[in-house]
Design a protein around this nucleic acid. Sequence first.
DNA 1: TTGTAGGCGTTATCAT
DNA 2: ATGATAACGCCTACAA
Lengths: 342, 342
Amino acid sequence: MKQKITLKHIARELGVSISTVSKALKNSEEISVDTKEKIQAFAKLYNYKPNNIAVSLKNKRTKNIGVVIPDIVHHFFTTVFRGIEKYANGQGYNVIICVSDESFDKEVINMEMLNNGSIDGFIMSLSAETQQKNDINHLREVVDQGIPLVLFDRVTDDIDCDKVILNDREIAYKATVKLLEEGRKRIALATTESYFNVSEKRAEGYKQALTEYGIELDDNLVLVLPYDDIKEEVINDFFEREAVDAVLSVNEIFAIQCMSVAKKRGMKIPEDISFIGFTDGLLSRYSNPRLTVVAQHGVTMGEEAAKMLIDRVEREIDGNDEEAYRTHIVEATIIERESTKN
Amino acid sequence: MKQKITLKHIARELGVSISTVSKALKNSEEISVDTKEKIQAFAKLYNYKPNNIAVSLKNKRTKNIGVVIPDIVHHFFTTVFRGIEKYANGQGYNVIICVSDESFDKEVINMEMLNNGSIDGFIMSLSAETQQKNDINHLREVVDQGIPLVLFDRVTDDIDCDKVILNDREIAYKATVKLLEEGRKRIALATTESYFNVSEKRAEGYKQALTEYGIELDDNLVLVLPYDDIKEEVINDFFEREAVDAVLSVNEIFAIQCMSVAKKRGMKIPEDISFIGFTDGLLSRYSNPRLTVVAQHGVTMGEEAAKMLIDRVEREIDGNDEEAYRTHIVEATIIERESTKN
DNA sequence: TTGTAGGCGTTATCAT
DNA sequence: ATGATAACGCCTACAA
């Protein structure tokens, strides 16, 4: 087992000083060609690599970014993460990831765990519980300390920082219009509890479209489902109770499940009923019929978030940190598949 | 923006020495109760936290672990990662993740990016390309340097280190036996290119079962599909060509797609044909019929991998690092759903 | 051209 | 009970 080699080792071995070695390895003009070659050869031979930790301590920057997300076993977050990781690695940054598991406490703990010099900035999407309580002191603290923070998707208006969001309201509006243009009259909205800001925004778009098309809002057509452990009967009861000819769902699971129940009830898709879901995941692509979806372009969101964060981190280093906070809006698109007419 | 506070700040502010502050914050007996209280109060007020980077440099350990996996937008890896993250965080470790994207070069780059003091050890699953080339010098180098390494799932026999794998052969055997016990005679195997060690192992189990049940192996029943961009015609041609009454698939996507084609061809599931796939992901749970699967217990694998790694890291610190390498085998289980008879 | 010294923030050993 | 000093590995302004 060969130990990691340091400047000190090289210096001692070659009978020169540490700073000579340091300069030689940076190809400094100060050092004679001879010694440079000797030192560089030696360093290469022993595969010298500067110790990142020491460099971080010196530079007061780690080239690490911290990502705190509610869930990793979830297609959307996974794609966003992919975008973050891709961009960050390209810029020489590493990504430390923590999962809050939709828990406020874990979110706070995760942030504290990272906020001790381990990272140069945060990229986050709020946990369900955090959105519900709307307790954001942990975010405020980070911002107050001057640590760059980028929020994506599940954001809050109560904190001033960079943000990356989807045009949720507009795309929900468009999706609803699409259903209306198909001639649908009784469009249901399958959604989560209302404390998710994105669900709220999507509901707004849905309602706006209906209103514009002169259709009276009917709260009975709004089906609120729990995040997990969905019971088929609930959905079946819903279809039993309400005559529905289209469903807009804020995620793909709800859409798939509603579609499944509709099929069992003998409805033809998309002849009798249309479906559109948010999230272009595997479920939508491999369902039967394949689901028309709102693609959230998670990778783009992630890349953009990482770019905003790293830009700000590097700007701070250069001293001109007083750039105004921006909110970048990623444009969702509708991918038409078999669950809608066209 | 209040700057991060350090021992030095506190010392200066309170007119004591840095070492006094350090000791006081550790509740050392050496320090008088008075000064301790004063210092601790001050530290709490200004929310002092030791700088992790400095501590890492001093201790020569980072409490970070590096994870390099082929793909994050993939249910199995995602669940393993979840297990790693969960266990590691519980032990006060952070997780830095890099995605190799099934590319050998990226895998090497990722490892180099981390292997400069940023982490205490690696958890990895090999990229497709790495398995194909079987070039593992980058792993060997890490091991030679004495950096703990744990391989999971996509491992190689050519490197000596801790490993966590699934009992792929046995469970494939069991799954095949299950199909045989249903009375199936023409069982297809839907698999990937053979350089994946797991696919190989699964194929072995499949073949063993057939042999034991006195069924002659028929290579025409082995359907090799590309990892992505699967063409339905290929599958359809396969069904056209071969009379098949069951399919064992090494992943869930292949199973779902085969199932879909079979349905289109008018076959009844599971009356005419049964399906079993590996990976208990969303697709299997929400397919129609719901797919019987081999659950790989990714979270368990991840937890176990993290435990093995951290144990070894901490053992090394205590000096007794000469523990033999272990291979931990996680027992897969079959989850029976609607795509098989029971 | 090369080397010395100080510092990044923390900890541990050894004075006082 | 408190403080000075050195060290972790690296970098850099300044001396020689």
